[in-house]
């Protein structure tokens, strides 16, 4: 599968956007949380799961998706949301809990829904997989275009939902692709301490579907493998399972002391940061520093505009908490 220069630049710019967005969120998250760290304080309260390091997965997969395609994501959704084209301003406002947020502040960072690009997520491990199967079934039954991609972490593969969904997708030959982001850690428990197989792509065989494993967080390989699986789903060939070796540069959540990591792991991972590495590839292929810096400037503007939008937006009246429980916007006491 050939990758156009345009696609590569989109991948670079989108990874950078996700990274710069999260670096900015990280700073703002700490406002009001020093000297004593209390998660409830500051302009962005609650848990914060950063995805920095995992950007190649998001761009390598979402480069093949259109707005009509469905994505279900996890508690760590920013990179995928950005790559899927979720409205960055409204997502940022949601993370701040503002009225202009995607759900007006009801969902927050683990519950990002943007119907314009068919993106949704759940904070419960592996529980987006069934809904992804259902969305894929819906397209198949209605004979409408579109595939579903369900992102999960490597910690999700031992959930019943994983096995049930793989079986259902294969049984019904659904246009769905399951993407396991293997960042090696389920909070503090390592993959090898939780999973009986070294690589989860082998589990695809149990459900008679293709399984792929991508090593070393390589955006170009991810692009190729995901492209093949998505093309297969689009053309009626059924589901695939892809596991992608990636890594998180941050803790499970902000405030995680990461004492479980072996000495030197963080420094080693930082040396393998996929974004500077991808920049080197682009430069070697003839893209100029000037062109890439220009993309970076655009990204900075997008992030600044999103943050400004969120900061300047008002909070919804607290009583709005009592609306939108049911479909007509109502709440039943």
């Amino acid at each position: 599968m050939l990758i156009s220069r345009e696609t590569k630049l989109w991948m670079y710019k989108t990874m950078l956007l996700s990274r710069r967005f999260e670096e900015t969120i990280e700073q703002i998250y700490l406002e009001g949380k020093t000297p004593a760290f209390n998660m409830a304080n500051g302009p962005i309260p609650g848990e914060m799961h950063l995805s920095n390091g995992q950007e190649p997965v998001a761009v390598g997969v979402c480069a093949h998706l259109n707005a009509e395609d469905i994505v279900t994501a996890t508690h760590r959704p920013h990179h995928q949301a950005i790559a899927k084209g979720v409205d960055l301003k409204r997502m940022t406002a949601e993370i701040f809990g503002k009225q202009t947020g995607l759900s007006g502040g009801r969902g927050g960072h683990m519950h990002i829904f943007d119907t314009n690009v068919n993106f949704g997520c759940s904070g419960i491990i592996a529980q987006g997989m069934g809904p992804a199967c259902g969305a894929a079934l819906s397209r198949k039954m209605q004979n409408k275009p579109g595939v579903a991609v369900s992102f999960i972490g490597e910690g999700a593969v031992n959930q019943g939902a994983f096995h049930e969904s793989l079986n259902l997708a294969a049984l019904w030959c659904l246009p769905v692709v399951f993407v396991v982001e293997d960042n090696a850690w389920g909070i503090s428990v390592s993959k090898q301490d939780s999973t009986a197989v070294a690589r989860n792509d082998v589990r695809a065989a149990a459900y008679d579907m293709p399984g792929h494993f991508v090593e070393n967080n390589d955006p170009l390989v991810i692009y190729k493998v995901a492209g093949d699986a998505i093309d297969r789903a689009r053309s009626g060939g059924g589901p695939s399972l892809i596991e992608i070796e990636t890594f998180r540069l941050a803790g499970h959540f902000m405030g995680d002391a990461e004492a479980y990591r072996p000495d030197g792991e963080k420094a080693f991972l930082e040396s393998k940061d996929p974004i500077p590495a991808f920049r080197k590839i682009l430069l070697a292929e003839g893209t100029t520093d000037v062109a890439l810096d220009h993309l970076k400037d655009q990204v900075e503007e997008q992030v600044s505009a999103a943050i400004a939008f969120a900061r300047e937006s008002a909070y919804a009246p607290a009583e709005d908490a009592l609306t939108q429980v049911f479909a007509q916007g109502e709440y039943h006491e």
């Binding site: 529980q127 997989m129 069934g130 199967c133 259902g134 079934l137 819906s138 019943g160 939902a161 259902l168």
Partner: peptide
């Protein structure tokens, strides 16, 4: 369906969100 309530009830949610009425 197979005896997989997590998958098929989850699939009901996904189908309903996508315009079906399961």
């Amino acid at each position: 369906t197979p005896i997989s309530e997590t998958a098929f009830i989850g699939a009901g949610v996904g189908a309903a969100q996508d315009g079906m009425r399961p």
